[in-house]
Write a protein that binds this DNA or RNA. Sequence first.
DNA 1: TGATTGTTCTTCGTATACAATTATCGCTTA
DNA 2: TAAGCGATAATTGTATACGAAGAACAATCA
Lengths: 221, 221
Amino acid sequence: MDTDLPAKIGAQHLPLRDQVLAALRKGIISGDYPPGERLTEDRLAEDFGVSRNPVREALRVAEAEGFVVILPRRGAVVASPSSATIHDIFAVRERLEPLAARLAAERAAPSDVTSLRGVLEQARQATENQNLRRVAELNSALHLQILEISGNPWLASIAKALYLHVQWVFQLTAEVRAPHSWDEHIKLVDAISSGDGDLAESVALAHVGAASAAARETTHG
Amino acid sequence: MDTDLPAKIGAQHLPLRDQVLAALRKGIISGDYPPGERLTEDRLAEDFGVSRNPVREALRVAEAEGFVVILPRRGAVVASPSSATIHDIFAVRERLEPLAARLAAERAAPSDVTSLRGVLEQARQATENQNLRRVAELNSALHLQILEISGNPWLASIAKALYLHVQWVFQLTAEVRAPHSWDEHIKLVDAISSGDGDLAESVALAHVGAASAAARETTHG
DNA sequence: TGATTGTTCTTCGTATACAATTATCGCTTA
DNA sequence: TAAGCGATAATTGTATACGAAGAACAATCA
């Protein structure tokens, strides 16, 4: 109800509900709010220093996005992504990310390719410096950028949401695959910059497939 | 605030926000709230006989689902699905519905197959009776049922949302393709009941592809 | 032990208030 | 008449309070 708000949430000019939603997503993905944790409206309102109204609106959207489960009259709890869930998500990603790669290959402007190669280069450096956190960030950035380049907002938005959930689960277990997935990323960017949609699609499929297999091992193998 | 609420929204025991969301979706898809229409909170609150709070929560979710666009400090307007949008949606559906068909073929229980064939039979009768509205309903039911049978909730939820948008756009233009799409539906159910995932996937791809082509013709051809 | 009751916590919805912003409309002026 | 300007109205964004209903859990009683 007073000035501790910007400190905790950031002094943007976005509606509070959006700031709360962003903070909530971040808190959940980071493990700050672990799966199963009860999220009472009062508690979140206090955590973020806002009233209950923006919290409630943020919770509804978080539910639609699959981050929380709301039981009527009982409130919200952080969702518990099971291995079944992660398997289901990968099944969808295996269809969508190859499509995104194909579209990206067909539509990428030279500046897009330059930008993708920039990410690859930064990742190479981060790998040399053993900065795994940074490598993971760049991994994410690369995928999201390809989604944007695809030029299909529905595809981008859906795949992005799925990708967020994958990040969430992997952060909770422990990402191991990052290092050698970069060979695949290089091939993927090469395919996109070549403009060969078929090639980009098949490389992306192999890439997501490998990630999916690794996920299976990590989560219940 | 008084007793005109259950009359307009239905006396379910769901939270009002969910009832409002359902009514809002329905109003938008039916064309009751046409694209571009301003949806002020007070107006919706009056329409549904509730206060602003449940309306606001419903609007946030409707925005996440792509039915309305919310401009900060300026309120919500019904989204305007352009031909670009519908093209983008079909591009995604062409990947997801075949996957759903494959999974359904691989997992369908005998009761599922019976249920699907029941829908087909009802559709045959409705077609004989020239009941086009009913045919459209059954069309929708068949697709949604296959999504359920796929057993992948993420896939089902995403594809369902996309399908709703397709229905919306087609209702606004005028569905013509319904009659001869039922040959394809029969083939699809046959493929699913045969348990042949490859076949089901390719039939579904052809089916969505045909719908996509028809959509292109209708919307800007 | 097992069923019932009662207490407490929380959500859900309503109502209200008010600041900030945006839209509207009439008025002035060129 | 057309354009620009300013006052006014309408709407959102946020906060707060309150009552009702439901769920969980403990205490009571048969």
